[in-house]
């Protein structure tokens, strides 16, 4: 019997340069749910995501239950080498995750036919951002932490990512997503919002 996936955060505080970034936060996210973290620049969205990913030390409690495998993560840094080709990049991360997903499938899903053998330095910002999602596609983890996934992407790519997130949530995954955009950005059920003051 598998445990149900859930994330419980109570009284989370985090200090950078011995100054607290945000007021103590408490929230709960469960299976098949999406949490959207909203707030202006400098309010600690990235810090919160890093705390959840276990990159920063914090006070309070962050409890994960039922996490399978590794946590998926998209950050501000892409983790791409300029001189590498797209094909090499895909092949390398497939090998690192020892994933069973074939390269053809990835190329088709992200429609990378045209750029497959060009160095990453020739790609645009949006294309590079899209490539970082390849890592999420490769392993079947059920938690995704996405830090501003939509910045610098055009409508097509945006739709692609939204579809990806949607199908992930339908598969009983969990998504924590941060954005500075106002209004409703996704039409997905089971969405929670957390506004950081």
């Amino acid at each position: 019997m598998k445990k149900k996936l859930s994330l419980t955060v109570t009284k989370l505080r985090c200090k950078r340069n011995s100054i607290s970034v945000f007021k103590p936060l408490s929230f709960k996210v469960s299976e098949g749910q999406m949490l959207i973290i909203k707030g202006k620049n400098g309010r600690g969205k990235t810090t919160l995501i890093h705390c959840l990913a276990g990159l920063l030390s914090y006070q309070g409690f962050v409890r994960w239950k039922g996490v399978e495998g590794k946590i998926g993560y998209i950050g501000h840094k892409f983790g791409l080498k300029e001189y590498e080709t797209v094909y090499d990049f895909i092949k390398f991360w497939k090998a690192v995750y020892s994933s069973k997903v074939s390269i053809e499938e990835v190329v088709e899903f992200f429609s990378l036919f045209n750029v497959l053998f060009s160095p990453i330095a020739f790609l645009s910002f949006g294309q590079k951002k899209k490539l970082t999602f390849v890592r999420l596609y490769f392993f079947n983890n059920n938690v995704w932490l996405l830090d501003e996934p939509f910045s610098g992407m055009d409508d097509n790519n945006r739709e692609l990512i939204v579809n990806m997130i949607e199908s992930h949530i339908l598969n009983k995954g969990m998504v924590v997503l941060s954005t500075h955009e106002k209004g409703r950005i996704l039409n997905i059920k089971n969405t929670k919002e957390l506004v950081i003051e």
């Binding site: 990913a53 946590i71 950050g75 840094k77 892409f78 983790g79 791409l80 890592r135 392993f139």
Partner: peptide, 11 residues
């Protein structure tokens, strides 16, 4: 470029 970050988060 953040590769180390991905290594660490993805364990």
């Amino acid at each position: 470029d953040g590769t180390l970050l991905y290594y660490i988060v993805n364990k």
